[in-house]
Amino acid sequence: MKEPGTGEGPATAAVLVIGDEILSGRTQDANTHYIARYLAEIGVDLREARVVPDEAEEIVVALNALRARYTYVFTTGGIGPTHDDITADAVAAAFGVGIGEDPRAIAMLRERFTEEELNPARRRMARIPDGAELVRNGASKAPGFWIGNVIVMAGVPTIMQSMMDTVGPQLRSGARVQVETVDAGSIPEGSYAMKLEEIARAHEGVSIGSYPHFSAAGIRNQIVLRSRDAARLAVAGQAVRALLAELSAQAS
């Protein structure tokens, strides 16, 4: 099992989105996009994202698979006050630990709610797996938690983002991936696909992809190069631009 802050090479991550509302299309998932951009800024590679329903068995299976594979797993959703908020229980089951009302979490909730307002439903948000550290959130006070290499956060974007700001400085960061985008214009992908593959193979440490962009002006293609090594990125970028220049000359 990979633990936070350990291991060699870039830290890796996965996002596990929990919620029937995402799968039904009722709610659009904005959290994965935010987490991906946040992690890219600090040099953590987001490698996988999954969406599972509010079913304990599904959550446990997915969580155990992801936490065995990546440095960090971020979950979003299912830690609110209603009966279908079962993420905390599922995480406890995945780790094989108990779960109960945490006095530290109750103290955080009291920063927002009076004793009268702190009813049984709201107290559900203070149920934390044994051994977990709390993740404070400045938006609503109800905490997330961090156990092993799993960071459990809310599904509401503003609250999740507050939690991400709390845990972000504690993550094992690395060199940021640098990105170069080369506009291929209206040159069809089929015209450069084979040569682009040759360039990709010849430049180790550089990821190269081609992405069509559809607009009112028609289809335009962009070639995106990514690398943690600025020198390698520059050389590969030159090769891509040379290829496109050659194709443009042939077409004119």
Results as ranks from 00 to 15, higher is better:
120 P>G: 07
8 E>L: 12
242 A>P: 05
54 D>R: 01
91 V>G: 08
239 A>G: 07
251 A>E: 13
36 A>I: 03
179 V>F: 03
111 E>R: 15
44 V>M: 01
11 A>V: 00
55 E>R: 06
44 V>W: 00
27 T>Y: 03
159 I>T: 15
234 A>D: 12
21 E>C: 11
195 K>A: 09
189 E>F: 07
72 Y>A: 10
243 L>G: 03
16 L>S: 02
204 E>K: 06
179 V>A: 01
68 A>S: 03
182 V>A: 11
142 A>S: 11
30 A>R: 07
213 H>T: 12
109 L>R: 14
178 Q>R: 09
38 Y>E: 03
233 L>A: 06
219 I>L: 08
56 A>G: 01
105 A>S: 11
230 A>C: 02
193 A>G: 07
110 R>W: 03
78 G>A: 04
21 E>I: 08
148 G>S: 08
81 P>F: 09
134 L>K: 12
16 L>P: 02
228 R>D: 03
167 V>N: 01
9 G>I: 05
209 G>H: 05
189 E>V: 09
123 R>S: 10
125 M>S: 11
139 A>V: 15
233 L>R: 08
127 R>C: 13
53 P>K: 00
32 T>W: 00
10 P>Q: 03
145 F>M: 12
70 Y>A: 05
135 V>A: 07
5 G>H: 05
156 V>A: 04
235 V>G: 05
89 D>P: 05
85 D>A: 15
10 P>F: 06
154 A>H: 06
206 V>C: 12
105 A>C: 11
28 Q>C: 01
175 A>G: 11
62 A>M: 10
13 A>T: 00
217 A>H: 07
59 I>M: 04
47 R>W: 02
147 I>C: 00
77 G>I: 12
232 R>K: 07
249 A>N: 09
190 G>P: 15
175 A>I: 14
33 H>V: 00
25 G>F: 01
159 I>W: 13
118 L>T: 09
232 R>Y: 02
28 Q>N: 09
45 D>E: 10
200 A>M: 10
144 G>P: 13
248 S>D: 13
176 R>E: 12
235 V>A: 08
4 P>N: 09
97 V>Q: 04
59 I>E: 02
249 A>P: 09
41 E>Q: 00
241 R>S: 15
151 I>T: 02
197 E>Y: 02
100 G>F: 14
26 R>S: 00
236 A>N: 03
174 G>A: 08
80 G>R: 15
60 V>D: 00
44 V>P: 00
27 T>S: 02
31 N>I: 04
55 E>Q: 10
226 R>E: 11
226 R>M: 13
234 A>S: 13
26 R>Y: 02
